[in-house]
Design a binder for these strands. Structure first.
Lengths: 362, 362
DNA sequence: TTGAAAGCGGTACCAC
DNA sequence: GTGGTACCGCTTTCAA
């Protein structure tokens, strides 16, 4: 439990000055320090297990090579953690480390988390949410390079870049998958209307029908909720007591949990999936979609890609401050700043066993 | 986007010295600084929006009031995030902040994460895992106060305190719940034998039978796995084609996902839950156990309590270095160190709708 | 080729 | 009651 070795300890052991240690260990030894001294320094450092004090470095260099990630509940909820995984991959590959602070959905803590991180000299900030949502950006985020992942500024002139999934085409491609299988009576359990993602997925559903020149059966579209029981009851309403000819041949769900409920309802009713009815999920939740019986066809959110894209933009801003930020309402701008970018990452269709051709005769 | 105000800026504006600023803003003004100066200092600080640079503070004070949390995959997996939530609650209430680093199950990154945190002067470290498991403690953790949550040192003389759930009594109480409902033929889908938690839950199951003076039907116990499909196939094996009199009246599952599979299988077979058969989950997974149809009776892991308990022990060590750490193999010990403690937190039974009395005639 | 010294932003001790 | 100054660990400039 000894004090950690400092550069001075290394210098003493090698019989040189602190400056020499600094130069050598930062690769600027050649031309400045004698070869012999270099070897002694490196050896002393190894023997003492020396690594520089990152705090002192940050203070001196005014940058920390740390990226702060603030999240509403990515750590504590079961969802969307891979955004952070993807972001961290990119950060590490470029010599940065990420630290995460979770505010457990308490909006009053967002700003404090940002200030805490700022006081510790983070070089950049990333805000990540569970589920697509608008965000009131904590003011501190405007003081350093920052990006948003899975959320966006809900104002006319956004100031920060953001990366979100392309929910409309996700919804459209999911629907197209079913249309291609011959389905026409495709019910939609649409999540909750007040959530930002759900209406976009519904729009994609409508777009697919429109592009195919087919009408949407409005009686088959409902705002169900997001959970297993909502899927169950939604499916019962669609299927229970309805004649085989009258019921939908496919049910598209706004997430996998709804789909679990649908599959459960179908089982209760003695309906076989996908023979009697196809079921489509959304989110491709790990260890749910792929382990259901039958395994769920689902639309995967590009979580890791989103995190990676957001981190890439952030590091770009940090390392090339010229390409920095959008005009902040016009006042004080240097005039050369670029507008805030919206990056939409496409979703990926995962075809599994819960979808199949439309039953004969339909 | 100006440089942040420093104590010197405040001092100039208030017409005093840096020392005065420091004293006043740290509450030691009275008796040292004139009331008038105090007011001017406070006002200047407010006007400049001054907050001290945490990096400089850490360097000066040799402590940061930051707790580093390293995890194998709590951030990026769907599980056990509430351990961190509970830990963070306690840390914040005592004026510390937590930062989390997730290594995504890559053991080669554990040590690097610890060193990174150590280089940033964290005052303490906590290691958190998804699922109970043994841990090779990264050596760096022995250099500052540290605790383990949901994991433990698998060696004869552990050096760090750890907090884990009481899986044996969890398994026992779950089984007792079913026994009390009159069940005797209770199947067990036991997870995976190689995972540390599963055998403990099984032991609890056996303990409950033993305490009741009842025999365990070994043909009903199987290592199924952890996922929905495993639960489904396990249940089919127990129920499909078996006469009503020959099948178990209850199925206890080592987690909720298995239970989902069991419910699904029962639905396929036209069996009603809990009328024909009771199903018991484990973990009380949020938005799975409580939203299943029927809602699952489950054994809740005390995640928040575990995190809170671990953080409480950690802060205790930090603030009272006397009560510091267990003997590290005997060498160099000062003789007064306490042994590493194991804290077991009880699980909580959540009774819902998937369990009921044993069917008449059984 | 090397070492001395300044400074990053604070705190705390010590003269005045 | 006040301000000067050393120091935390490191990098960088400059003089020797």
């Amino acid at each position: 439990m000894h004090r950690k070795a400092t550069a001075l300890d290394v210098a003493k052991r090698a019989g040189v000055s602190r400056s020499a240690v600094s130069l050598v260990l930062n690769g600027r030894g050649d031309g400045n320090v004698a070869k012999e001294s270099q070897d002694r320094i490196r050896q002393a450092a190894a023997e003492l297990n020396y690594s520089p004090n990152a705090i002192a470095l940050s203070l001196r260099n005014q940058r920390s090579r740390v990226i702060g990630i603030v999240s509403d509940e990515v750590v504590t909820s079961p969802f969307d953690g891979n955004i952070i995984g993807g972001a961290d991959d990119v950060a590490r590959s470029r010599g940065f480390v990420t630290v995460v602070m979770d505010t457990e959905l308490d909006a009053s803590r967002h700003e404090g988390a940002v200030e805490t991180l700022l006081d510790r000299q983070v070089d950049g900030l990333m805000y990540v949410t569970v589920g697509l949502k608008p965000l009131d950006v904590p003011p501190g985020m405007l003081r350093v390079p920052s990006v948003l992942a899975n959320c966006y500024e809900n104002i006319p002139e956004p100031r920060l870049h953001h990366v979100i999934p392309d929910e409309v085409s996700g919804g459209r491609e999911a629907t197209e998958h079913l249309l291609q299988l011959g389905h026409r009576d495709i019910a939609l359990l649409a999540g909750l209307e007040i959530s930002p993602a759900a209406p976009l997925r519904v729009r994609g559903y409508r777009d697919a029908f429109a592009a195919a020149g087919l009408p949407v059966r409005e009686d088959l579209v409902s705002w169900a909720g997001w959970d297993i029981d909502a899927g169950f009851h939604g499916a019962m309403k669609l299927l229970d007591g309805v004649s085989p000819g009258g019921r939908p041949t496919a049910i598209m769900c706004a997430n996998d949990r709804l789909a679990v409920g649908v599959v459960l309802a179908a089982a209760r009713l003695g309906l076989s999936i996908p023979r009697d009815i196809s079921v489509m999920g959304y989110d491709n939740e790990f260890r749910i979609a792929n382990t259901m019986v039958p395994a769920l066809t689902s639309m995967a959110l590009p979580l890791r890609e989103m995190g990676a894209a957001a981190m890439t933009m952030l590091l770009q801003q940090i390392e090339d401050p010229a390409a920095n930020r959008a005009p902040a309402g016009g006042a004080g701008g240097a005039g050369l700043e670029t507008a805030a970018l919206e990056t939409m990452v496409p979703c990926r269709l995962m075809v599994r066993e819960s979808t199949g051709p439309v039953p004969a005769g339909r």
